[in-house]
Computed example of a mutant assay.
Amino acid sequence: MEQTSSKAPNFVPVILAGGSGTRFWPRSRKATAKQILALDGERTMIQQTVDRLALTTERKNIWVITNSVLAEKIGAQLPDVPVGHILCEPAARNTAPACGLAAFLMERDEPDTVIGIFPSDHVVKDAGRFAAALRAGIAVAAAGDNIVVMGVPPTRPETGYGYIEQGDVAMPAPGLLLPVRHVHRFTEKPDKPTAIEFVATGRYSWNSGIFLWTARTLANALREHVPQVAVKLTEIAQSYGTPEFEEVFARLYPECENISIDYAVLEPRSGKGEQSSGIYCIPAEFGWNDLGSWAALHEHQRSIAAPGCDQHGNVVDGQGVIALNSKGNYVYAKERTVALVGVNDLVVVETEDALLVTTREHSQDVGKVVKALQELGRKELI
């Protein structure tokens, strides 16, 4: 790992906020996506993300990449983020073009800027430990041609997450009593037997989707691995700040390959071998949860003993819920009284125009309801 000057690196967080969060239907819709909902308190998911990042940088340094449907509401929720830092993708093109857009924009003026990529809809129990891990990651990313990923210690053989196989200890984490390890490889969403094997080895972490790198490092990686995307993003970045930007952005961005940053950069680069890839993993030991389903929200609420939790494992968001001889249920009901009698592990979500009833086990499949509604032409419900 190369050494640089002692000057503190410039840090720019980039929040990816373009998703629709279909697994949180019926609360989450296109115009009220998961990231702008307050799922676990008074602050919305994206507001909580900005609050955490504000421990390491000023809010005016934060950028958000979203879509035209959500931009106005996000701007209203984040008044301290400059309007010019909220970019609307003309088309959804997965995470590689979104991350790359930030890299090429920053590379124009300050190529040594450390860019952090953050999902907009995750929760963290310990913001202080998050900030400490983030500062450590920024230092590693700034020290050379390095890529840093936050790896979450797995608690179960989850098949909905990507996995990071960690190799040898590379160095102590700056400011942390934790090691920074080389990354051996990335594996996307394994099947259950493979996930069980991964967890049993003790060498694997969940991929949190939080990455750190300098603008130069990411831009060069995209030039190497997805050169056609890099060419288009370069032209878009060059037009930023000019009257032609919106036209160039709208014309070229939809032509970018629809590919995740994992497939575009991380997997091919980790294939070089852990000692030469320059990819490092910092343990994300700060109580991370991606809230990817109603079941995950139930788990998170239980873990923090949130209001509405009872001694039988039920989690209730609403005043009129009665639970008799019922265990492990999640209920969201603000308008109607919901009575549970002799049922376990259900998810019940009531909104003005829809009612969802499923089990916690099948809550990952709620997105299929949205697809079914699309096929039925029920646009008013999505």
Score class of each variant (00 low, 15 high):
residue 184 H to D: 15
residue 255 E to W: 02
residue 377 G to I: 05
residue 230 A to N: 00
residue 196 I to S: 14
residue 218 L to A: 00
residue 292 G to S: 11
residue 5 S to A: 15
residue 26 P to C: 07
residue 162 G to M: 04
residue 340 L to K: 00
residue 194 T to H: 13
residue 40 D to N: 15
residue 222 L to D: 00
residue 372 A to K: 10
residue 313 G to A: 05
residue 195 A to K: 06
residue 367 G to C: 11
residue 12 V to A: 05
residue 334 K to S: 09
residue 89 E to C: 11
residue 298 H to V: 03
residue 196 I to T: 14
residue 65 I to R: 04
residue 281 C to Q: 06
residue 66 T to D: 12
residue 50 V to S: 07
residue 78 L to I: 09
residue 105 L to M: 12
residue 304 I to P: 10
residue 44 T to R: 08
residue 331 V to H: 00
residue 152 V to A: 12
residue 149 V to F: 00
residue 354 A to N: 01
residue 38 A to G: 15
residue 223 R to S: 07
residue 103 A to V: 00
residue 225 H to A: 02
residue 129 R to T: 00
residue 293 S to Y: 02
residue 157 P to W: 13
residue 56 T to L: 10
residue 59 R to T: 03
residue 32 T to S: 12
residue 253 Y to A: 12
residue 244 E to C: 09
residue 54 A to S: 15
residue 162 G to I: 07
residue 357 V to M: 06
residue 337 T to Q: 12
residue 199 V to A: 13
residue 165 E to F: 08
residue 178 L to D: 10
residue 205 S to G: 12
residue 276 S to H: 14
residue 353 D to Q: 07
residue 212 L to R: 00
residue 159 T to G: 10
residue 266 L to P: 09
residue 80 D to A: 06
residue 37 L to G: 07
residue 268 P to A: 03
residue 127 A to L: 03
residue 23 R to G: 07
residue 373 L to P: 01
residue 224 E to R: 00
residue 239 S to F: 07
residue 31 A to M: 12
residue 39 L to H: 05
residue 270 S to Q: 09
residue 330 Y to A: 04
residue 70 L to S: 14
residue 99 C to F: 03
residue 382 I to F: 06
residue 134 L to I: 10
residue 193 P to V: 08
residue 378 R to F: 03
residue 371 K to W: 15
residue 233 L to M: 08
residue 363 S to P: 04
residue 73 K to P: 08
residue 225 H to K: 05
residue 295 A to Q: 05
residue 153 P to W: 07
residue 45 M to H: 14
residue 350 E to R: 02
residue 356 L to K: 01
residue 319 Q to K: 10
residue 266 L to Q: 04
residue 353 D to G: 03
residue 320 G to N: 14
residue 341 V to Q: 14
residue 37 L to N: 11
